[in-house]
Simulated scan of single mutants.
Amino acid sequence: MTTTTRILVSSEADDVVGQELFGQLDSVEVIPYDPTTTTLNEHQRQAEIFVPPYRGTNRPMPLMAQMPNLRMVQLTAAGTDEWANEVPDGVVLAGARGAHAGPVSEWVLSAALTQYRQWPALVRFQDEHTWAHRKFAADTLRGKRALIVGAGSIGLAVARLFAAFGTESTLVASTCRDGVHAASEIPNIIQGHHIVVIAAPLNEKTQNLVDKDFLAAMDDGALLINAGRGKIVDTDALVTEVKSGRLRAALDVTEPEPLPEDHPLWTFSGAIISPHSARTVPGTNVLCYEVAVLQIETFLNGKIPSNSARPKGT
């Protein structure tokens, strides 16, 4: 007798594609839900797999307590850190790692070009109707060196894009492997890099990794690009360095987040900030759900999904 697995999937516009893709799996019933609700109906409560929405992923987190048969939580986000301590014991937690490599690496490249080609200054001159020929010093990515902290799909994609612009990359991960340095080596290799890209997940080892000492070791005039998590960077230490003009920054994530209106980072000419939107371009939701389908299919076949965190209580 074939057993039907119930999957709870958001009914919001970005998640309809997820309902369609999950519906193509064998022996699966897709149950829509409103991620703004606080109460599930009896049918929704029977779900064994829970898929939070593409936008505002954390909103329906409390609903897990209403699902007694829950066996898996599948995120459309790359990182699982915000859910890791919230899923019930024994429940598999998996992310959509790999889906964001294209959009996020493109954002990193655009952030680097924006800073090096001085687009913020150009826009300000344009606002003043000023033809700013030779009034600012633009630079090029060619011949630069980038230290990429995080050698997963995003970090590797960033390195490939940088290479096309003549930028040499040094990759760093938690442990060393062929062509990749260990994080413990950062103090010895950080100097000589014009750009430092943070593309690592947030965990106990990476929280506040980019602290006062890390920033002080960066070359004068270097650019810090954070496309990982805000808590990886010590914000106060970064404020000090950017305020002095010694370092520049391009941030898609901050700590705190959202950044308060009166935060000094908003005011620095050496900083550009985007609102945690590096992945937010048309089609990214489809990429995320395509990865999610593979993860859930693996789980339904009795195997461990490649993007899963170890279940709590095991």
Score class of each variant (00 low, 15 high):
residue 2 T to P: 15
residue 12 E to F: 05
residue 12 E to M: 08
residue 12 E to W: 03
residue 17 V to F: 02
residue 20 E to R: 02
residue 24 Q to N: 07
residue 26 D to F: 01
residue 30 V to D: 12
residue 33 Y to I: 08
residue 37 T to P: 01
residue 40 L to W: 04
residue 47 A to P: 07
residue 49 I to Y: 02
residue 53 P to D: 05
residue 61 M to W: 05
residue 66 Q to D: 03
residue 66 Q to A: 05
residue 70 L to N: 01
residue 73 V to Y: 01
residue 76 T to H: 04
residue 81 D to P: 10
residue 82 E to H: 12
residue 83 W to K: 14
residue 86 E to W: 05
residue 87 V to A: 07
residue 90 G to C: 09
residue 97 R to T: 05
residue 98 G to K: 07
residue 100 H to V: 10
residue 101 A to Y: 00
residue 102 G to D: 00
residue 102 G to M: 00
residue 114 T to G: 14
residue 119 W to H: 07
residue 126 Q to F: 07
residue 134 R to W: 00
residue 134 R to F: 01
residue 138 A to I: 11
residue 145 R to A: 12
residue 145 R to N: 15
residue 150 G to S: 08
residue 152 G to V: 01
residue 156 L to K: 12
residue 162 F to V: 12
residue 165 F to E: 03
residue 171 L to F: 08
residue 171 L to Y: 08
residue 176 C to G: 12
residue 179 G to N: 06
residue 181 H to F: 13
residue 185 E to Q: 14
residue 188 N to S: 15
residue 207 Q to Y: 03
residue 207 Q to G: 09
residue 217 A to V: 10
residue 223 L to Q: 11
residue 223 L to K: 13
residue 223 L to G: 14
residue 227 A to N: 02
residue 227 A to M: 00
residue 230 G to C: 11
residue 240 T to H: 04
residue 244 S to Q: 08
residue 244 S to N: 09
residue 244 S to E: 11
residue 247 L to F: 04
residue 248 R to C: 09
residue 254 T to F: 02
residue 261 E to G: 10
residue 266 W to P: 15
residue 276 H to V: 11
residue 278 A to Y: 01
residue 281 V to P: 12
residue 281 V to H: 08
residue 283 G to Y: 04
residue 288 C to P: 12
residue 295 Q to F: 08
residue 296 I to K: 06
residue 297 E to M: 05
residue 298 T to F: 07
residue 299 F to Y: 08
residue 304 I to W: 01
residue 308 S to L: 03
residue 309 A to P: 04
residue 313 G to A: 08
